[in-house]
């Protein structure tokens, strides 16, 4: 395996984290339970003052904070949003994040923010479009950057590359890290009928710096990546499979809908921490 992205950038595995969501603004900074780091959705902290900032400051006093964006629009046709990138850069510095991340997707067309993570066609043209944009973001922000493999329900027209090759080409040519969402791998594998483990094996695993675990909704004909349920057994198994190949990497329990109690989310983080410890003992 080539030298890992994390090693080259001096990034250490942080353990198990959870997201700072509005429901937890008061309780999370005061929790006495184990927690290794906190993820934030930067869009919630770039322009909103008051309670959001107080919660962020309180978390930053205790934990590493990693911004994980949804609005960078790295794959879209519009120029990168100047205001967004400069505020994001300031936020990354303010929380002194060792790295930051967003999704390999587009979310804006013709100046309109669609507020969704929309899939790109798996083509060389899309790779060539995204790569310089990733480089530009990394140069502007000046910290290591990870792209996440998004979930997708529809293969976009004109695709010529396998999904794993598409991901590999982007992160290798841009020389960025990979945020591997294991639930997304599982959901995509089920929705598109491929083998999840073979997909993981086909990825540039030496670039994985962070893992996401989340729950999904099972509909009769499709799985929807809702982040609104507990991590299912199959995803835990795929997580173990992945960790055995990447080694222990920072792992996030991701909830965005029907968020349960803080304790329930921390229980899942405990479980992830247990898996990471087992891997370290191996």
């Amino acid at each position: 395996m080539p030298a890992s992205y994390a090693h080259r950038h001096g990034l250490r595995a942080l353990g198990a984290g959870i997201g700072l969501r509005r429901d937890f603004y008061e309780a999370l900074p005061r929790t006495e339970r184990a927690l290794d780091w906190v993820e934030i959705i930067p869009e919630n902290f770039l322009t909103l003052g008051g309670r959001t900032q107080r919660a962020l400051d309180a978390c930053r006093e205790r934990w590493s904070v990693l911004p994980h964006g949804v609005g960078l629009n790295i794959g879209g046709p519009d120029a990168l949003d100047e205001d967004y990138v400069s505020r994001l850069s300031a936020l990354v510095r303010r929380v002194d994040a060792p790295f930051f991340s967003d999704h390999l997707c587009y979310s804006r067309l013709g100046g309109v923010h669609l507020h969704d993570l929309l899939p790109l066609p798996f083509t060389e043209a899309a790779v060539e479009h995204v790569v310089p944009r990733v480089r530009e973001v990394m140069a502007r922000v000046g910290r290591p950057f990870l792209l996440e493999n998004p979930s997708y329900y529809a293969k976009m027209p004109g695709g010529t590359l396998a999904e794993a090759d598409f991901l590999r080409h982007v992160v290798e040519q841009a020389d960025c890290g990979l945020l591997l969402d294991v639930n997304n791998v599982y959901v995509n594998a089920m929705n598109h009928g491929y083998d999840a483990r073979a997909f993981v094996d086909a990825l540039p695993l030496e670039r994985v710096v962070q893992i996401h675990l989340a729950g999904h909704e099972v509909r009769p004909d499709v799985l929807i990546d809702t982040h609104g349920a507990s991590v299912c057994d199959e995803v835990w198994a795929l997580y173990r499979y992945t960790i055995a190949r990447t080694g222990a990497v920072s792992t996030l329990i991701e909830w965005d809908q029907d968020i349960p109690s803080l304790d329930a989310v921390l229980d899942e983080a405990d479980r992830a921490r247990g898996v990471l410890r087992e891997e370290l003992r191996r």
Partner: peptide, 22 residues
């Protein structure tokens, strides 16, 4: 996109999501 094979129900999910966010 002539010849695009993806089922329409899958693509239509995105129209629903985008409107649903608003």
């Amino acid at each position: 996109h002539p010849g695009w094979q993806t089922p329409r129900t899958r693509t239509a999910l995105y129209g629903g999501f985008v409107r649903g966010h608003v």
